[in-house]
């Protein structure tokens, strides 16, 4: 989004990091019998060959490790590739299995690993910083414009009717808020909306919303905050 601010006139940015979520099929193994795995996997692929062709795949060894069933990760990876699937991650592997996967260029997905050994901790990717960067907008947000912030969103001007603000974190508007404001769009129920003049078309926190008709009690030209309490939006003076 090239809305505002911080862009340096000296050079145009050629890249940026964005966080995205993808849905990827996970292959959960309950047996270490490579031949049986191959047979059953082939049958599954046969049901929807187009869907599985070159599909990325994460394999999950948690069940195996729970029952102390070892499996050769490199043989498994070869098998997966042979069937035109692309292994892009291992989950729930033991330390030695994870190391083996990394050697094959397969990233380790932490989280549900059974063997949380110190080696694995070192290998797991750096956790994302808790506070994603705050986006600051200094010009009015006009009708038809849409702003998405991965963290908090601060607007130092008015937000016109027909404009839309979306933030994964909190939203602050230091002008009249006449458009829509949706905080915690990725499900953060702790997110709040703060504004100095509430005339919004719609406000929402983590999917719980109120439209302008329900906002009749809210008096314009008063500083308010909006937060979620027992799945209901509460509007309170600051």
């Amino acid at each position: 989004m090239s809305t505002d601010s911080q862009q340096n006139a000296h050079h145009l940015p050629v890249l940026e990091f964005k966080s995205s979520t993808f849905s990827v099929p996970v292959l959960v193994l309950t047996s270490n019998d490579i031949i049986a795995i191959e047979q059953q996997l082939q049958e599954k692929i046969h049901l929807a060959p187009e869907f599985f062709k070159n599909s990325p795949l994460v394999f999950d060894l948690q069940e195996l490790n729970k029952h102390n069933l070892d499996i050769d990760v490199s043989r498994l990876a070869t098998l997966i590739r042979k069937l035109d699937l692309l292994p892009i991650g291992i989950r729930g592997g033991a330390a030695q299995q994870n190391q083996q996967a990394l050697k094959l260029g397969i990233p380790v997905h932490s989280g549900q690993s059974v063997a949380a050994s110190s080696i694995q901790k070192q290998q797991s990717p750096e956790p994302e910083p808790l506070t994603a960067s705050t986006m600051l907008i200094t010009h009015p947000v006009r009708s038809g414009q849409r702003i998405y912030a991965e963290g908090d969103l601060i607007i130092l001007a008015q937000v016109s009717a027909g404009a839309e603000l979306l933030a994964e974190g909190n939203i602050h508007v230091y002008g009249s808020l006449r458009g829509r404001a949706l905080a915690g769009v990725q499900g953060n129920t702790e997110a709040r909306i703060f504004c100095s003049d509430l005339q919004a078309e719609l406000i929402s926190i983590a999917g719980n919303y109120k439209i302008s008709e329900d906002l009749n009690d809210a008096v314009p030209n008063r500083r308010v905050q909006i937060y979620l309490q027992n799945h209901t939006l509460v509007i309170k003076d600051i």
Binding site: S2, S143, G144, A161, G162
Partner: peptide, 24 residues
């Protein structure tokens, strides 16, 4: 008034000056 507001949004995001990060 609303249509003007929409047009202002387009001016500030889709003009050459906006695209090339020049003075708006």
């Amino acid at each position: 008034v609303r249509d003007s507001d929409r047009m202002l949004g387009i001016l500030s995001s889709k003009s050459r000056r906006a695209e090339q990060n020049e003075e708006p």
